[in-house]
Amino acid sequence: MKQITRREALKLGALVGGSLLLPIGFQYRSQAVTAGSPQPTPFSDTRS
């Protein structure tokens, strides 16, 4: 079995921690895109 060095363990921990935080960053980015832009009015059919 291969021994894991401290440097490899820190690299792995940083990789795992970053991958866990990545979806949170995308979630906040998607909300920030529509923060200041005007939203379109919903379509309504008045012919009925």
Rank of each mutant, 00 (worst) to 15 (best):
G17A: 08
G17L: 06
G13F: 12
S30M: 10
K11P: 00
V33G: 02
G13P: 02
I4S: 09
D45Q: 01
T41M: 15
R7V: 12
S44K: 11
A35R: 14
I24E: 02
G18Q: 04
K11A: 15
V33N: 04
T41H: 13
G36D: 08
Q3T: 15
G13H: 04
A14K: 11
P42T: 03
Y28P: 01
M1W: 05
S19N: 03
I4V: 11
R7A: 15
T41R: 14
T41A: 15
L21A: 13
T46H: 07
Q3H: 14
R47H: 06
S44Q: 14
L12Q: 12
I4F: 10
R47A: 06
A35H: 10
Q39F: 05
R29T: 11
S19C: 07
P42M: 05
L10I: 13
L20M: 07
S37I: 13
L12A: 15
S30G: 09
R29D: 07
F26E: 03
L20I: 06
Q39I: 07
K2V: 05
D45M: 01
L15Y: 10
S30V: 05
P40C: 01
L10Q: 09
L15T: 14
L12F: 12
K2Y: 04
R29C: 06
R47C: 03
Y28L: 14
R29N: 08
R29F: 13
E8W: 02
P42N: 03
D45C: 02
S37L: 15
P23D: 00
T41L: 15
S37A: 14
A35N: 06
F26G: 06
L15W: 12
G25F: 03
E8D: 09
L21G: 02
K11S: 13
S44C: 07
S37V: 14
G36I: 01
R7C: 06
Q31D: 15
L15Q: 11
G13V: 07
L20R: 02
S37T: 14
I24V: 15
L22G: 04
P40L: 03
Y28N: 08
S30D: 15
L10Y: 05
Y28E: 09
R6E: 09
M1L: 10
G13N: 11
T41Y: 13
S30A: 13
S19F: 08
S19L: 14
I24S: 04
G18S: 08
T46K: 09
T46M: 08
I24W: 10
R6T: 05
R6Y: 03
G25R: 00
G13S: 14
A14N: 09
P40Y: 01
A35W: 11
